[in-house]
Design a protein around this nucleic acid. Structure first.
Lengths: 145, 145
DNA sequence: CTATTTAATTACTTTAGGTAACGGTCTATG
DNA sequence: CATAGACCGTTACCTAAAGTAATTAAATAG
C-alpha cells in the first residue's frame, strides 16, 4: 500500500469520476424488469427519508423541473406507492406521502437491486469494505444534497 | 477509528449505491454547455483506452443497442472527433477511430468537468482523499471492465 | 450456389426530461 | 381592503436519447 505522496485532488477527481460512473452504470445494467425506473424509485426513498413533501420540494431535491416531478408522482400514484393529500393551510399545495405498498416496494426493490452488489462486496476483505463504507459517507458529503 | 463489527455487505451495498449515484448525478449537473453529452464522451474515452473499434463492439462495451451507437458515432463524426474507416477484410464492418481533435476534446472535457470535483476534494483531509483513492480502485474492480 | 447469419443502418416508437403558459390561491402594498 | 403580483401544481407541447423492427449488403455454412 504505497503512500509516497499525498493524493492530489486533480488526478483523484478523474479516478473517482470514472470509478463512480462505472459502478452506477453497472448497477443500472443490473436493474431487472421488475424494478421501478430510477427516477421513480428515488422519489420513494426521498419520501422515506424525509417524510411527506410537496411535489415542488421533491423537484428541488431531485434537481428536476416541477412538471417532471408531477409526472413521476402521478406514475407512483397509479402504482399505489404514494398518495396525494390536500393541504388545508395553503390550498395551492399538496402533500405527497408514501403508502404502505410504497414502503414495501422500497424494501423489495432494494433487496433485488442490491443482490448483485452485495455479492461483489462479499468477496472483498473487511478492510476494503471498511474503506468503501467511509468512502460512501465522503461521496454523499461531496455531493451535498 | 471505530471498527466494532465488520461492515456487512448488505447494508454497505445500499450506502454505496446511494453515494455513487449522488456523485454521478451531481457531476452530470455540473456538466457545462461546452461539454459533450455523456454518451458521446464515453465513446471517445473507450476509443482512447482500447483503440479503434467497430460500432458493434462499442455498442456491446457501452451496453447500448447498435442503432443507438450508430447515432452516437455519427454525431462524433460530425464534430470531427472520430472518423470511420472501411475494413478491407470484411466489408460489412467499419472501424471507428479517434481523430487528433477527438484526443484533444477528451483532455479539455476532462479538465473542465473535473474542475468542480477537484475543488470539493481539495477541501477534504489528505486521509479522506487517500480513502477515496483506494475506493476508486475498488469501485473499478467491482464494476469489472 | 443457395440459405443463413452478421454488421451497420434506416424508420418509427418510447421514455424521460425541458420550456411556456394557465388557473387557482396566497400575500403585500397603495 | 382591493387588487397586482408571486407562487404552486398542472397542462400542452417539444427535445434528447434510447429501444424495436425492418432493410441492405456482405460473409459463411451446408
Amino acid at each position: 500500500m504505497s503512500q509516497a505522496r499525498p493524493t492530489s485532488p486533480g488526478t483523484l477527481a478523474g479516478e473517482l469520476r470514472v470509478g463512480a460512473n462505472r459502478l452506477v452504470r453497472k448497477l443500472r445494467h443490473q436493474r431487472g424488469q421488475a424494478d421501478l425506473p430510477e427516477h421513480q424509485f428515488v422519489v420513494l426513498t426521498a419520501l422515506n427519508k424525509f417524510g411527506p413533501m410537496t411535489p415542488g420540494a421533491l423537484a428541488d431535491l431531485e434537481g428536476v423541473r416541477p412538471p417532471s416531478m408531477t409526472r413521476t408522482v402521478n406514475a407512483l400514484v397509479e402504482h399505489g406507492f404514494v398518495s396525494k393529500l390536500a393541504n388545508d393551510q395553503d390550498k395551492r399545495q399538496i402533500t405527497v406521502q408514501l403508502t404502505p405498498q410504497g414502503r414495501n416496494e422500497i424494501k423489495e426493490t432494494r433487496r433485488r437491486r442490491d443482490a448483485w452488489l452485495t455479492k461483489q462486496l462479499g468477496s472483498l476483505s473487511p478492510e476494503d469494505r471498511q474503506t468503501l463504507a467511509q468512502a460512501s459517507e465522503l461521496l454523499k458529503r461531496i455531493a451535498g444534497h
